[in-house]
């Protein structure tokens, strides 16, 4: 009887004792020690992988090829198809690589993989891609849908309604003059529409320091422009409309709406507009830096 009792006590410990002996799951949780927040993360990582894969191929041979299979990820080789200056067509399973310095679409372009442009790319026909890596400028004149990320080394101009993926990065300037959806946008200067004038901020009213609210807040100018020197933080929605220049960051645990005339940040600095559940921007607004939402990002022009 004692034996059965001891056995019944011991049984629940057996998996624990086995694990203590075998040590199958003993490693510490992985913390990436070189992690640093970088809005260009996706593009840079992909570039690095691409570079490593291509470095294994003979460069002279590469120039003459129309397509090639390269080991991009550990799963299986990816097919890369090459274009020179004109690109288009349906390539659902291939990565599209455009070699030319000044390229454009000549027909609708579709791929479930990445589009890479070695130079600038002008999108003149509706285009769908998983991600885009553009080493020059990007000009979008026809609807574009990107599922993951867009990385542009030059300037990006969006003139047609687009879905801008989960991360849209330009190392220079982004101008969006069409209704779009987004999750994150980063550039030294982001223009929504074209119409912000510096003269709008002549003789402004000023608020020094930060603004914090636990409730929803709305800041709207009428006759006189307003400069807010600090951050605007709220637990609820933040709505800013008119000639308001926020020199700090805007952060809401709910949503942020910035409408017509609002400027965030300043030239030479990076500031952020973060609305955890939504960010809505209506032209004409300008942000020096970063716009982020984990929910819905909408641009209305």
């Amino acid at each position: 009887m004692i034996f059965i009792f001891l056995l019944l006590i011991l049984i629940p410990f057996i998996p624990a004792l086995v694990e203590l002996a075998v040590k199958k799951d003993k490693d510490p949780l992985i913390i990436k020690q070189d992690y640093s927040k970088d809005p260009a993360f996706f593009g840079k990582s992909f570039s690095k992988i691409l570079e490593e894969a291509i470095s294994k191929v003979d460069i002279e041979l590469l120039d003459s090829l129309k397509s090639i299979d390269i080991p991009l990820s550990s799963d299986k080789p990816e097919k890369l198809i090459f274009f020179t200056n004109e690109v288009g067509g349906k390539h659902p399973r291939s990565i599209v690589f455009v070699r030319g310095q000044e390229s454009k679409t000549v027909e609708p372009l579709t791929t479930n993989k990445e589009v890479i442009a070695y130079g600038s790319l002008r999108i003149e026909h509706s285009t769908f891609a998983r991600s885009m890596l553009i080493f020059g400028n990007l000009e979008v004149k026809a609807p574009l849908e990107v599922a993951r990320w867009i990385h542009v080394e030059g300037e990006a101009t969006i003139k047609a309604p687009s879905i801008l993926g989960i991360n849209f990065y330009s190392s220079e300037k982004i101008t969006i003059d069409a209704s779009c959806t987004f999750t994150r946008i980063y550039a030294k200067e982001i223009n929504i529409g074209w119409g912000i004038k510096k003269s709008s901020f002549n003789n402004p009213a000023r608020i020094e320091g930060n603004i914090k609210s636990k409730e929803a807040m709305s800041i709207k100018t009428a006759d006189r422009s307003l400069i807010i020197e600090g951050n605007i933080i709220s637990e609820k929605d933040i709505i800013i409309e008119g000639d308001v220049w926020v020199k700090g960051n805007i952060f809401s645990h709910e949503g942020v709406v910035i409408i017509k005339g609002v400027v965030v940040g300043m030239e030479g600095a990076i500031k952020s507009v973060v609305g955890k559940k939504s960010v809505i921007m209506e032209g004409n607004t300008k942000i020096y830096g970063y716009v982020h939402t984990d929910g819905e990002g909408i641009i209305k022009v």
């Binding site: 996706f42 990820s73 769908f128 849908e145 599922a147 993951r148 687009s162 779009c180």
Partner: peptide
Amino acid sequence: MKSMGLGLEPLKSFE
């Protein structure tokens, strides 16, 4: 803008 609905697979890319 409405999605073109090309039926992407769930997120499986390297990132």
